[in-house]
Amino acid sequence: MKRKIALFSLIFLAGIFLSGKNDSSAIDGKGDKKSEKKVITACDGETQVVLNDVSKDEVMSREKAQEVAGMLLATYQQQKKYQSTKFTRRDSLIWERELKAMIEEGYKWFHDPSLGTNGISCDMCHPDAADNHPETYPKFQIQLKRIALLRDMINWCIENPMEGKPLKEDDPRMKAMEAYIIWARANQDPRPHAKILNPGKR
């Protein structure tokens, strides 16, 4: 219960920071005893700071709130550092396996003419996803007259050379193809500009 209240407080606190307004009603401990100390919890639901000099119901000034947010962030980062040493080899094997599965899924769609209607698949023009340049997105695509993301050009190639229907942006096939394209550029192209991509790195 206490924790929940503290979490609420933190969400309010974050609200102040985002809006840049010092809304006095925002920080508003809801405990029943006036003398209780204020506890603020970060968005991870775990990291907490206990404020000795602020009571539960007290509204903090903007300066104070900023100071508290800073403390919270520092505590959070320290904990994270500690945690990152807690991951085991087994964990990272799982992550690798998951990533590999998604890339393989992307490879499959990239080589599948069923995304289009005329028999053509992406790999026919982009062997090993060459000339996809994932490292250059987002960019202004002159012919589209707007900023394009990688997925916009994927859809463009589905609709045009492959005469197919565009995929929804959150279509798992789209996500998987993006993963494959980035992976392929980073791993199958030895040129320096491909090396700025680092898929899978924590």
Binding site: C125, A130, D131, P161, P190, R191, A194
Partner: peptide
């Protein structure tokens, strides 16, 4: 269609 130039 044109093919990309190979990376090496």
């Amino acid at each position: 269609w044109p093919w990309p130039y190979a990376p090496t």
